[in-house]
Write a protein that binds this DNA or RNA. Sequence first.
DNA 1: GTATAAACGAGACGGTACGTCGGGTCTTCAA
DNA 2: TTGAAGACCCGACGTACCGTCTCGTTTATAC
Lengths: 211, 211, 211, 211
Amino acid sequence: MSGSMGTPVVVERPTLRRGRPRDDRLDAVIVSAAVAEVGAKGWGGATIDGIAARAGVGRGTIYRRWPSKTDLFQYAATAVMRPVEASDSGSFVEDLFAAVLPIADMLTRPELAALLPSLLAEAANDPSIRQTLRTFVAQSRQQAIEAVERARIRGDIVASTDAETLVDMLAGALVYRRLLLGEATDAAAVRALVRQAVQSCATPTSTEEDS
Amino acid sequence: MSGSMGTPVVVERPTLRRGRPRDDRLDAVIVSAAVAEVGAKGWGGATIDGIAARAGVGRGTIYRRWPSKTDLFQYAATAVMRPVEASDSGSFVEDLFAAVLPIADMLTRPELAALLPSLLAEAANDPSIRQTLRTFVAQSRQQAIEAVERARIRGDIVASTDAETLVDMLAGALVYRRLLLGEATDAAAVRALVRQAVQSCATPTSTEEDS
Amino acid sequence: MSGSMGTPVVVERPTLRRGRPRDDRLDAVIVSAAVAEVGAKGWGGATIDGIAARAGVGRGTIYRRWPSKTDLFQYAATAVMRPVEASDSGSFVEDLFAAVLPIADMLTRPELAALLPSLLAEAANDPSIRQTLRTFVAQSRQQAIEAVERARIRGDIVASTDAETLVDMLAGALVYRRLLLGEATDAAAVRALVRQAVQSCATPTSTEEDS
Amino acid sequence: MSGSMGTPVVVERPTLRRGRPRDDRLDAVIVSAAVAEVGAKGWGGATIDGIAARAGVGRGTIYRRWPSKTDLFQYAATAVMRPVEASDSGSFVEDLFAAVLPIADMLTRPELAALLPSLLAEAANDPSIRQTLRTFVAQSRQQAIEAVERARIRGDIVASTDAETLVDMLAGALVYRRLLLGEATDAAAVRALVRQAVQSCATPTSTEEDS
DNA sequence: GTATAAACGAGACGGTACGTCGGGTCTTCAA
DNA sequence: TTGAAGACCCGACGTACCGTCTCGTTTATAC
C-alpha cells in the first residue's frame, strides 16, 4: 500500500543491468498523465488504464514502477509538493510572507490543486499517505513557526503570541479559500492576509513601521 | 450524477401515493449505516452491499432512494451539515465565538470528520456536490462575517479590518488543523483562537477589557 | 414448488366466505396472459410483472392463486392439456387414428405449442411438473396402446407386434416434427402416418382393405 | 444474443495476436462446468457464478468468450452435438440402424440429455439457437432418409414407402421416450425398433430374410 | 344500514443473479 | 530485461426479477 517517499522510483533496482534498460523518461510521463487523469476525474474516477492510455504506455509499465494505484498517487503528490525553504531576512513580516507564499503558490498550481482533495481523502484512510502528508505539512509549518519565534525573541511581537495559532490561521485561510470556497489567493492577497494577521501580535510601536 | 440537495429524499414522488408507502425510517437507517461504513473504510472502500448489510436492508432499497453511490454520499454529507444559527449578543467576541464554534463542532463530530475529506474530493469533480458544499460554507461564513460587520459599525473594532479575511483565518485554522494536521479543536481552543484573532482588529481601548 | 394438479385453483378455501369474494374470471385471464407471455418470451423470459400487466392485474392477485411462477406455469400447462378419450369403433386404423389425432391437435394448438418446450425444460428439474407431464402422457399413450391390443386380440394385426413401440413411433413422429423440425402435422398427414405405421404390423390379408 | 455456431470460440479474433494469448484449455473446462451445472440445476437454476466456481475461473473469463448466459448455453449444446456419419453397408437394416443409433446415443449421454430440454425451450424463442438446432437435426435426419432412398432404389423396400415418415417415426420414438416418458433406449431396443419399423415397408420376400 | 373481512391494484421490501468494469497479476511477443 | 498488449481472478456496481409485505380502495356477506 505504501512506498518510500522521496525516492524517485519506488522499486529499487541493482546497478548492474542486463537486458533492455528502463526508460526513465517514462516516469515523468506517467506521473503527469496521472496528475491529468486525477485532475479530470478525481482519484476515484481515474483508472490505471486511463492513465496508461494518456501516457501512451502499457499497464505493466506503471505497475513495474509503483506497486499500486495508491503508490502512484502518493508519488505523484510527493512530486508536486516542494518544501518551503527557510527565510531569515530579519524582517518579521517578510519572513512570514516568505514562509506562507509558497503554500499559496502550491494551492494555486493546477497539479496540486487537482490532487489535494483526493490526497486528503486518501490520507484519511491510508496511514502511509497520511504520514507523507503530515510530514510535509509539518515541515512547512515549522518554517513559519520559527519565523514567528525569531520575531518574538527579537521583541518584534508581543510575548503572549501563540506562534502555532498564528501560523494555523494564515495557512488555514489559504487552505480554506482553496478547498471550501474554491478561490485562489494571489501574492497581493497573501500580503494583505499577512499584514492583517501580524496586527494580532504587533507591539504598540511596530504597527506603522512596515508597509 | 446528482440529485436535488436539501430535499430529504432525492427522488421526487407524487403526493398521491398508491401501493405500499416507502418506509421513511429506513432513510435515516441507511444514511447512518453509510456514515458508519464510510467512517470505517473511507468512501472508496465502502460498498453498497456493506451499507445494506449494516442497515439490514436490500440493495434495491438503497438504489430506490439514491440512484448511485455518489448520490447517497452527497445526501449523507448534507444530512450531517447543520447550518450555523445567527447570534447577536452585542458582544463581538461572543458573536464571533458563537459563529465559529459550530464549525469546530462539526469538524470534531466523527460522522462529518469522516465524510469531509471524501466530500471535498467528490466536490472537485461533481458540480452538484460542489454547489451543495459551497452553499453551506457560504451560509456559515456569512454568519461570522456579519458578526464582524456589526462590531465594526458599533466601533468595537478598527474600521480597516477586512471581515472576510478575519473569518477565513478563523475558519481556516479549524479546517487546517482538522484536515492537514489531523487535530481537533475543542471549545477552549476555539476561544483562545478567537481571542488571538480579535487582537488583530482590536481598538486600542478594547485590548484589555475582555480576558 | 408444486401444487395439486387438476384442481382449478390451487389454494383450497373454505366454503364459508366473508369479505369480498375472489373474482373467478381472473383465473382464466391470468392463465391466458401467462400463456401469451410464455409464448412470446419463453418461460425464462416471462416475468410475473409482465403477466400481471398483460392481465391487467396486480402481482398479489396472481400469487394469491398460485404460490410461485412454477405453479402458475404448471397449472397453465394442465389447463391446455386435455386427455384423449377412448375410441372403440372396431376398426383398428380408426381407433389408432382417433387416439393419435388429439396429440397432433394439441401440438398444433398455439397455446400448448408455446408452452410445451418450456414445460419439458422445467419437467427435467421439477419433480412435480415431471409427474404432471408423465401422468398425462401415460394416459394418452395408454389409449393408443389399448387400441393396438384390441386389434391384436381381434387378429387384425400380427401377434408379434409390440404395441408400445408402435405407439411410440406414431406419437414420437408428431412430437419430433413439432419440436425438432418445427413442423405441424395436420389431420391428413396424421392419417398418412397411421397408414404407413400399420403396415408394419398388418396381416397379409389386411393390407388392402382399408383406405 | 447469438454467435456463430460451430466456431470453437464465439468471439472472432484476429490472427495477429498481441498480449497474453487466451488459454484455449479453459474453453473446454468452462463448457464442461456449464454442462455439469445445467445437469444439476437446469439451465434456469444454473448461475454464471456457479459455473465459474466449478471451472475455477473468474466470471470475466466466461463473458470474454460468450457474451451472455444464453450464448454459452448455445455453444455448450453445439459442442455435445456430433453429426451422424453416413453409413452405406448395402444392408438396409444396418444402414438405418447406423443412422438411428447415434441419435439414441446422444439422447442417452447425460450431458446432452440434460441440455436438450432447455435447448428446445430456448430454441422456441431464439432464432439463432433454433437455426443451429434445425441444421443439426436436418443433417442427421438426411443420413437416415438417404439410407431409405438407397434401399428403395435397390428394391429392398416397397416403392410407396415415404422415407421421411419412416425416419420421423424412428427418430421420433427415441425422442418421445426420452423427453416425454423419461426413458432411454439402448442399442438392443434401437435394433428392435428398427426391425419393427422396416416391416412397414418390407417387400413380401424380404420379411423373413433378416432377423 | 352498517360493520366486517377478504380481494384487489400498486408498489416497497429483502434477496439474488446478471452483465460490466476496474484493480492487480501473469504471460505472450517484439525490441 | 523492458515494454505493449491483453488474458486472468476477484469483487463492486447498478439493474431486474422473485416472492412477501403493506397500503388504500372496493365489494361482498353478516349483523
